[in-house]
Simulated scan of single mutants.
Amino acid sequence: MADYQQNTPVEDPSASTQMFRAFVDEPQPQPATAVSGGSRTGLIAIGVIIALVVVVGVVYLAVK
């Protein structure tokens, strides 16, 4: 006869609770809003300048 027992490890039901509590209790890092906001504003400004240069170049070539 065949033996159909599965050899799965028995899990501790309290282990998932302990891992969840450790996840909830760990301190969350505070986002640095001033640094990311400043760099984002700088990137937007550079993007706008590049777009203006491209538009001026296209207009100049179209008029010429």
Rank of each mutant, 00 (worst) to 15 (best):
S36V: 03
D12Y: 09
I49R: 05
M19W: 13
D12I: 01
V56M: 13
V55L: 13
S14D: 15
I50D: 03
P27H: 00
S16T: 08
A2I: 12
D3A: 08
Y60N: 05
T33Q: 04
F20R: 12
V56D: 09
T33F: 05
F20K: 04
N7D: 06
D25Y: 02
P9Y: 07
G38M: 10
S14L: 12
A15L: 08
E26W: 06
Q5I: 07
V24E: 14
V58Q: 00
I46R: 13
Q30E: 06
T8G: 07
V35W: 05
V48K: 06
P9W: 02
V63C: 06
I46F: 10
E26Y: 04
N7V: 08
G47P: 00
D3F: 11
I44T: 13
E11F: 11
V35R: 10
E26Q: 09
E26P: 02
V54I: 12
T17M: 14
S14W: 13
A32Q: 10
P9I: 01
I50L: 15
L52H: 04
V53Q: 03
V48I: 15
V10R: 12
V54C: 09
A15C: 02
Y60P: 01
F23D: 10
A15I: 01
V56L: 14
I50W: 14
V48L: 13
S39E: 10
S36W: 04
L61P: 00
P13S: 12
G57T: 03
V48R: 05
Q28T: 11
S16A: 15
A34F: 03
A15K: 14
A15P: 01
S39W: 11
T17P: 01
K64R: 14
V53Y: 05
Q5R: 13
Q28S: 08
V10Y: 06
S36Q: 06
G38D: 03
V10A: 13
V54F: 07
A34G: 02
I49F: 12
V54G: 09
T8W: 07
T41L: 15
D25F: 03
Q6D: 08
Q5T: 09
V59H: 03
R40V: 06
G57Y: 00
E26M: 06
S36R: 04
F20M: 15
G47S: 14
K64S: 15
I46E: 13
L52D: 07
E26I: 00
V56P: 03
V24P: 03
Q28V: 12
